[in-house]
Design a protein around this nucleic acid. Sequence first.
RNA 1: GCCUGGGUAGCUCAGUCGGUAGAGCAACGCACUCGUAAUGCGUAGGUCAGGAGUUCAAUUCUCCUCCCAGGCUCCA
Length: 666
Amino acid sequence: MAGVSVRLPDGSTKEFAHPTTALEFAESIGPRLAKAAVAATFDGVPVDLSRTLPDGAEVTVVTVTTPLGREVLRHSTAHVLAQAVLRLWPGAHYAIGPVIDDGFYYDFELPGGAHFTDDDLGRIGDEMRSIMAEDQPFVRHEHTIDEGLELFGDQPFKREIIEAVGAGQDEVDAASEGAGEHGVSTYWNSPDFTDLCRGPHVPSTGKLGHFALMRVAGAYWRGDEKRQQLQRIYGTAWETADAVTEHLHRLQEAEKRDHRKLGVELDLFSFPQQLGGGLAVWHPKGGIVRKLMEDYSRERHASGGYEFVVTPHLANANLFETSGHLGFYKDGMYPPMEMDNGTYYPKPMNCPMHCLIFDSRQRSYRELPLRLFELGTVYRYERAGTLHGMMRIRGFTQDDSHIFCTEDQLQGEIASLLEFVMSVLTAFGFTDFTFNLSTKDPDKSVGSDEIWEKATEALRLALETSGLEYAVKEGDAAFYGPKIDIDVKDAIGRTWQLSTIQCDFNQPERFGLEYVGADNGRHRPIMLHRALFGSIERFFAILVEHYAGALPAWLAPEQVRVLGVRDDHQDYADSVAAGLESQGVRVSVDPADEPLGARIRRAKLLKIPYILVVGDDDVAAGTVGVNQRGSDRPERGVPVGAFTDTLLAEIAERSVETPASISGNE
RNA sequence: GCCUGGGUAGCUCAGUCGGUAGAGCAACGCACUCGUAAUGCGUAGGUCAGGAGUUCAAUUCUCCUCCCAGGCUCCA
């Protein structure tokens, strides 16, 4: 065989006289690289280190600290998990074991309908460690489809994956599991374990070891709740033990920001059992934050050309028949109430009622775009298992708007909406946006293809003319029209889907909406649905988590707490507080019947932005000691006026950053 | 709705191999009067989620219901 020549990522080439594996290639570059290598890529395609270099390819060595390297590591660890489970439960069926963010999972069906319990995780982990200690190789084999079916004769899920080849819909899944038109690929670890897989894998199980099994869960086979439920085990795996520890630490930190926990600690809201699942009560401290959010929203909508409307919580069933909601979402609506003149439902959406407002009299093109806005409270019967604090709740309020416009106005409206959304969200401290365009789901939609085409194109053009990058989510639209969803990234890098802009040609048609045009003819308006917060409850929860409960001063339930050093500073503390209160500052005084340190601690735990300590010096000089949130270095002797001015400016600007210094001297 | 794990004082948790419960913090009272993250003493607080069963006896064992957590499914 002639020699081979391959290209390196830096553009240089390397020649080999004999057939050479990717591992030997890595060794030829350096022993450290070879040691860190877990896989390679040939012309961008990930492959095992044992593969032979193809002539002329661009070759990279994949090391364990890269995203692809970690994927290989996690995928390989998932295989070991399956092997361990099959050892411990002979006769178990194994399904799929893909890589996910920060980890992996594997789905199983245990013999005799057995289920994993949390206690099993320890045993399984031990078994995995012994497989890793055995340092078994991952040996790749290629088979024909028939051979594959034979090989996995007693494994129904593996057979189903292989059988999906050529059958259409599950092709992509099958390919990622190693089954395709070409045949199937498997990895052999030991005489007792072979798995179906595309690869690549680390060379041997000895390369693995830094992992943790996280939890047991149920998961439907193929994600279909009509099919059987399998037992899923989630795990995480990293290149070093320290990286595992760090990951677990990050999870702990995220837990500390959990809005449900902070909701109790900061006395913001609760879910009384007597109320019923998924229904919240807002306590005064949560209530004031909500009011501030709503005030700001109303203010922006007022200046944005919106008109305020109010609609009731119940509606005749006919309304939701007309809108189509009953047809598509009956199961997600609260059950109907029979009343003397018909059947009524709690409303799950505000849009049908806004259509009725449009339809209440004849409309002229001169009125368009007509922008109706409502903080509309809706009720949805979310399934019990989906409830999640304020994030997923059964009664909530949407900052809902419906814009009726002409076809000519559509483009401009969408573009200005995109601006509006980003501007409002920025005020709350979110600056990192991503955009998704969701298109028609053929199985769950109303209206003609032509109308959908038009609506989708309008959204696409608006995104493009605004110069925004976006991803397309096929089949993710609402039943009445395509939409743009806007995700934000929070302080610890998690993304949340917040705002939505939906283009709807269907409801105006279903409701028979019309306006009189300049041509004196009747025309159908187009309706844009949009929400910025989405649900106020959910947005509030995201805000709490984003700030870990330390809300910016303009949103903080209590902005300032004044502490006298001794009892005899009480009058001065009261007067400082009264002065601030007269300027609209939310302030309280904590009297000196406990040591100062204890009162400071309590105020810090409540995440109050400013703690003012006043003592003899301050009474004499008309100053305060300012202990700012996030700082461990209080400023003494700040004139009351200087503090007040800085604070009022911070609040008026709705600053999401705390000023570096209150006195302005530093 | 499905799978797994839970529910003990306002919060965080201990405990009872079946004999009706305990700590810290919080609350309340008294004393302390203090310059930047926990002053001391005392008081009160629980149908051990709810219901049924087994038992001389159930917070503990069994079953059912409700609620919570983590997933799955769903999310107009």
